[in-house]
Every structure is written in structure tokens, then in C-alpha cells.
Amino acid sequence: MVVVAEAASLVLLLSASTAQADTTTVLALAGSVTDVLNNVRNWIMGVLAGLATVFLSIGGVRYVMGGGDPGEIEKAKTAFKAAGIGYGLAALAPLVVTVLQGIVGA
């Protein structure tokens, strides 16, 4: 088993050393500023919605597992509020990008 792993590592190292980098390839190319801002908007919306979902889940678990403890119930409500704010900001992300487009002049 160890011999197979060592052989695979050797093959990977040898193939990596003979590979040549193609310096003419552009990996990230945006056609315009609008494309960049739309990508930023989509990224922001995804991150905010993901975080809001995590906070919503944490709040739900805290509420269910709180067992009537007022401190835990309050922490759950705080997590629910944070999730609501996150979803609200994710919904407003297109407006932010529109404002940025106005500032940049795109």
C-alpha cells in the first residue's frame, strides 16, 4: 500500500516538473465594469444569504434546545433578528450595485 502511494507521488512530481506554464492564458476576464459589478452583487447576495441561513439555523436550535430558559430564548431571538437583517441586506444588494454603477458611471 505504501509502495503504491509512493509511486503515485513520484508520478505526480515528475509530471508537474515537466509541465510548462502557459503565460498567455487569462483566467479572469470581465467584458465590462457592469459584468464585474454584477459578479460582485451575486457574490454578496450569496454570502449574506448563506450567513443568514446559518444564523436562522442557530436560532432555531437554540430556541428548541433552550428548554424555557429565558437567556437562551433571548439568544435565539437575537439570532433570528440577525438572520432577518442578513436576508434584508441580501435583498438590497442589487440596489447597492445600482448605486455603485451610478458612482462609477457604468
Rank of each mutant, 00 (worst) to 15 (best):
Y63A: 13
M45N: 08
T53S: 15
L56N: 09
D35C: 05
L12A: 15
L95T: 10
L27T: 04
V97A: 09
A7M: 14
G86S: 01
T25C: 05
A7P: 08
V54R: 08
A5L: 08
A5N: 07
T34A: 07
I103V: 14
G86F: 02
G68L: 12
M45H: 07
G46F: 00
I58V: 13
L29R: 14
G71D: 15
D35Q: 10
L89P: 04
L37Y: 04
V2W: 09
V2F: 11
G88L: 00
A79V: 11
V3P: 05
G59V: 02
V61C: 12
A90V: 03
V47P: 05
L12F: 14
L48E: 10
N38E: 11
R62L: 15
A16L: 12
T25E: 09
L51S: 11
L89Q: 02
G60W: 12
S57I: 14
E74Q: 01
L51E: 12
T78Q: 12
K75S: 08
L92W: 10
G68E: 12
V96E: 00
E72Y: 10
L12V: 14
A16D: 13
V3M: 11
L37I: 06
K81P: 01
D69C: 06
D69T: 07
T98E: 03
V33H: 02
E72C: 09
R41L: 06
L92V: 14
T78F: 07
A52D: 08
E6H: 03
S15Y: 13
N39C: 06
A49L: 07
D22F: 11
L13H: 01
A19V: 07
A49E: 03
L13D: 03
A28P: 09
T78G: 09
V4G: 00
M65L: 15
A76M: 09
Q20L: 03
T24S: 15
G59L: 00
V36E: 06
Q20D: 01
A83T: 10
V36D: 01
V3G: 05
T23H: 02
A16N: 11
L10H: 06
L92F: 14
A30L: 06
M45Y: 04
V64P: 08
V104E: 13
A93Q: 08
G31I: 00
S57V: 15
D22S: 13
L48P: 06
G71P: 09
E72R: 14
G46L: 04
A30E: 04
T24E: 13
F55P: 02
G67Y: 06
L29T: 12
I58S: 07
V4N: 04
Q101I: 01
E72N: 12
V54Y: 06
T18I: 15
T98A: 01
V61R: 07
P70Y: 10
G102N: 03
G46C: 03
V99D: 03
A21C: 09
N38S: 12
I44R: 02
D22M: 11
A7V: 15
I58Q: 06
G67K: 03
L100Q: 01
L100P: 05
V26L: 14
N38T: 10
V99T: 05
S15Q: 13
A83H: 11
P94T: 05
P70Q: 12
V11Q: 12
G105M: 01
L13I: 00
M1I: 11
A79F: 15
F55K: 09
F55C: 08
T23L: 10
T24P: 08
I58N: 04
L89S: 04
G102C: 02
L14N: 10
R41E: 13
